[in-house]
Design a binder for these strands. Structure first.
Lengths: 202, 202
DNA sequence: CCAGAATGATACAGACCTGTCTCTTCATTG
DNA sequence: CAATGAAGAGACAGGTCTGTATCATTCTGG
C-alpha cells in the first residue's frame, strides 16, 4: 500500500524498490534464498540498507514479494503458450510441456523457484512456503481444467501424472543432465495425454 | 579409517559415532541441511561437540557421510525391489515405481535427500553436491540398464522419461498433495514403459 | 530558493553458527 | 592400582546474518 503510493508520488524517476526486487529475484533464483544475505542484495543493487527495510518489512517479506512476482510471470507464460492453440485443450497441454522442455534446457534455468523455496523453507508457518504451495495448487487446477476440457477419461489421474512430470522436469533440468531433456518431457507428456484422452481424437 | 578402528576396539558397547550420524541424518532429512546446526545435532544426540569433530572433519564432512549412507540405503532398497521379479526387467521397472508411489505417501517422506541437498547446496565445488549428482547419475545408469534389458525401442528416451517421473514423484510427494500419489506414479510409469517396450510382450 | 521526503552510507546490537580449546569423567587394560 | 585414551561439558573466538539507528545527501514541488 504505502510503498505503491510512495512510488507513485515520486513518479517515473527511477524504480527504487524495483532495483531491490530485481536483484533479489535474480540472486534468490540463482543461488538460493538462504544462501543470499541482505548485505549481498543491497551491495549488488546499489541501494542503502534502510531503503530495503523501508520497502520491505523483513527478508521474509522480500522473499514473498519475489515469489508473488514469479507467480505473475509464470501465469503470463502459461497464458502465452495456451493462447497459441485456442479452443484446443489437448494441443494446449502438449504445448505447455514442449515449452517446458525448452525452458529447462535454457542456460539460465535453475529449477522451479517455488519448488526450491519449499525445499529451503521447511517451516510450515513460513509465509513464503505457503505461497509456494498455493502456487502448486493453482497449477494443478489449471492442469485439471485442461484435462477435463480435453475429454480425458480420468482427469484427476491425468493431471496428477502431468504434474508429476512437470515437477520432474524442474528437478531434473537443474540437477541432472538428461541430454536434450526437452524431448523426453514433451514425448512423455504426449504419451500420457494421448493415452488418457483416447488415441483417436485429434 | 581410524574411526572404524576405534569403533572396533571399543567393541559392541555403544555406537559413539553412530548416534551422531543417526541424529544428523534424521534432522538433515526432516528439516534441511542448512537449517540444522551443529549445536542442534550434538544436543539431540547427547554427544559432546568435540566427539563430533573428532569423528567428522567438518559439517560438510558430516553431510557427506549422511549422503553416502543414504546412497547405500537407497541401493539396498532398489535391490530388494528388483529381486522380487528375477529375470523380468519390465516388471522390475514397474515394481520400482509402484514402490516409489508407496514411499512418497509415507508420513515420514520428505522428498529425495539428494535432490534436496543439491537444491540447498548450489556451490558446484561442494563435495556433498558432487555426491548428490553422482547418485543421480548412478540411478540413471541402473534405469538405463533395465530399459535395455526390457527391450525398449529407445532405451535412452525411456530412461530419461522415467527419471523425470521419479524426480517428479520425489518433488510432488513432498510439496504437493497429489491425493493417492502412488497410483499416479505407478500408472504413469506403466504407460511409459508399455509404450516404449511394445504393448504385446508380457 | 527552500522545505520536506526519499535515499545513500555506515555503525551497531543481538543472535546464530562453525570450529577450537580446556578440563573433567569414566572405562578399559596391563 | 595405575596408566591410557575416549568421551562429556562448557567456554570461547571469529565470522555472518538480520534488523535498527544515525547522519549526510539529493531530488522534487511550491
Amino acid at each position: 500500500m504505502s510503498e505503491i503510493e510512495s512510488a507513485g508520488t515520486v513518479g517515473m524517476r527511477k524504480p527504487a524498490r524495483e532495483r531491490i526486487l530485481d536483484t533479489a529475484a535474480d540472486l534468490f533464483y540463482r543461488e538460493g534464498i538462504r544462501a543470499v544475505g541482505i548485505d549481498t542484495i543491497i551491495a549488488r543493487s546499489g541501494v542503502a540498507k534502510m531503503s530495503l527495510y523501508r520497502n520491505f518489512a523483513s527478508k521474509d517479506d522480500l522473499v514473498c514479494a519475489y515469489l508473488e512476482r514469479s507467480m505473475l510471470q509464470q501465469a503470463a507464460w502459461w497464458d502465452r503458450v495456451v493462447a497459441r492453440h485456442p479452443g484446443d485443450p489437448r494441443a494446449q497441454m502438449k504445448a505447455l510441456f514442449t515449452a517446458l522442455g525448452h525452458w529447462i534446457d535454457h542456460p539460465k534455468f535453475q529449477g522451479c523457484p517455488f519448488t526450491s523455496a519449499a525445499a529451503e523453507l521447511r517451516d510450515p508457518a513460513n509465509p513464503a512456503r505457503t505461497l509456494a504451495l498455493a502456487h502448486k495448487r493453482m497449477v494443478r487446477e489449471r492442469l485439471r481444467a485442461l484435462a477435463v476440457a480435453a475429454g480425458a477419461a480420468d482427469p484427476d489421474r491425468l493431471c496428477a501424472q502431468l504434474q508429476l512430470l512437470m515437477e520432474g522436469a524442474y528437478a531434473a533440468g537443474r540437477a541432472l543432465d538428461l541430454g536434450p531433456g526437452n524431448q523426453a518431457v514433451a514425448s512423455a507428456a504426449a504419451a500420457l495425454i494421448d493415452g488418457a484422452c483416447g488415441e483417436g481424437r485429434k
